[in-house]
Nucleic acid binder design. Structure first.
Lengths: 103, 103
DNA sequence: TCATCTTATCGTCCATCTACGATAAACGAT
DNA sequence: ATCGTTTATCGTAGATGGACGATAAGATGA
């Protein structure tokens, strides 16, 4: 986890690091649900996500931060609230990487 | 995380649970590397994986257990060693689920 | 049998995750 | 200016994860 991105003599590649990093962001059901909900809503404020999840506001905010840090979600301040939406590029990139996994 | 698989009135669906569970199994670079290596090798014993990863044998064994529990990997006892191989069905299922993520 | 090899498991340590309440910060409305 | 609303952050507690050495368990070979 705290390994360098580039590991010259290691079999752990940058691909592995990227897949793992994005997979970690989606490794909690609430976060997958958030991504789905945002994609379905197009855009929505944090409060709405809180209202549809069985979690406290602080917890939802934390999950949103994880998703934002991983690039899955973008937040735009709109007055006193924050509008969130999915970043389709990140979702697509994750899908592409996962599709490259040899099966 | 310890939520029931089926949550009637929740927005956290079974889809979310499954994606999260499989994503968690791939949320560590070493585990992605193991899956790649096994897929490339077709099959190989634990010791070989240990030799190509910068991790102790016990740690690799733990990672293999996580992958096995998630269904990504199968282990078959072969004398004193254990032959591991990828379970392509699980990889494909994960790819299918991830592909269903709305982008 | 006994030594050896291979892998799984145990015990442990430290770090991170998840959840929450409480609070701060930012804004709009009165 | 103050109040109410909304969201982010802080602090914390408990659970889980990841790493390792040590050891047990299982099978082969001498």
């Amino acid at each position: 986890m705290t390994r360098p991105i580039t590991s010259p003599d290691s079999t752990i590649t940058e691909f592995d690091e990227r897949v793992a990093e994005m997979a970690r962001a989606l490794s909690h059901p609430a976060r997958v649900a958030i991504v789905r909900h945002l994609a379905a809503s197009g855009t929505c404020v944090c409060g709405e996500i809180v209202s549809v999840l069985p979690l406290a506001q602080a917890t939802v905010s934390q999950h949103l931060k994880v998703l934002k840090d991983a690039g899955f979600v973008q937040g735009e301040v709109d007055g006193p609230r924050t509008c969130y939406c999915v970043n389709p590029e990140t979702v697509k990139r994750f899908q592409s990487l996962v599709a490259l996994l040899p099966a």
